[in-house]
Design a binder for these strands. Structure first.
Lengths: 152, 152
DNA sequence: GTTTACTTGATAATGGTTATCATTACCGCG
DNA sequence: CGCGGTAATGATAACCATTATCAAGTAAAC
């Protein structure tokens, strides 16, 4: 049930999903935002604002770091992006897939590597908690910390 | 099974547990460290370094903020304290109870309030994942995010 | 008591994130 | 089409939690 999560999502689908949501919200179209959205769509796992910015600049874009943070904040507020805190003081982001399926993370405390995994029993347990508790649960995240294969 | 977690731990037991562990490690006794350990022992849930420092200063202590961070780092490295990242860029800490029993957190994304809960099925699911994955899992944490009763 | 080196508290430095602000450019309206 | 209001941008300063530095203090071994 706990799989290594070898999925390869259709990046394009999230890209258009996000573009539609932004249009529906009435935001203006801009090259900076487009570039950031496209960059996020291309990610396989989470990336920090700085990493996204660096990749964009390497590819010739002139987006400012502020626009990357602004776009991430906007997308996060709209639920289009999931924020992951691995505990090193850096926020990482990855696309939120519309179907609701998602994964969680194994964080190596020695080298900082992040791997993804998915587990149905875990999701089930969390949903049951959400139903039972006096709290409206919108999202959840799980991090398992330890040593990856290489660091062990 | 998912309880509101109304436990009232014996603060003194963790206090002596921590003091013993520090003595065994061979650290020197100091008033600053004692003060921080006592403050942590008195917490019901997680608190940030700054909060701990503020409380100590209010109570007349002269501990410097650096000593609070240093002590937290030391205790965390010894597994005596658990670090929680609620996603607001501030690390929070709470005593790790020797029995291994622990709780997780409900984080209100609008007011920042943090509540604790415990769930056996969740722990069970996580242990099964830990056994199955190619990763040595030392710790785990779960955060459910949403709106608390007051903010809903 | 002396010595050694662990600790401390104040403060400077670091680095991710946010706020500011003048400028640019989208887009609805005439 | 061209104008005007204003969202959005990019550079940069400000912010703030956390870390590193360092001279002074102090616990513990001898």
């Amino acid at each position: 049930m706990a799989t290594p999560h070898t999925h390869t999502h259709d990046h394009g689908s999230w890209n258009t999903h996000a573009a539609d949501a932004l249009a529906r919200k009435g935001t203006r179209r801009s090259s900076a935002r487009d570039a950031v959205v496209t960059a996020i769509a291309a990610q396989d796992c989470c990336a920090s604002a700085q990493e996204i910015h660096a990749r964009l600049r390497t590819d010739g874009s002139t987006v400012g770091i502020a626009s990357v943070y602004r776009t991430l904040e906007l997308l996060h507020g709209m639920g289009l992006v999931t924020r992951i805190d691995t505990g090193d003081g850096v926020a990482r982001f990855e696309p939120t897939h519309p179907g609701g399926e998602h994964h969680h993370h194994l964080v190596c405390t020695s080298c900082g590597a992040v791997e993804a995994f998915h587990d149905d029993a875990l999701e089930e347990a969390i949903h049951r908690i959400a139903d039972r508790v006096d709290f409206r649960v919108d999202a959840h995240d799980v991090a398992l910390r330890g040593a990856c294969r290489a660091c062990r």
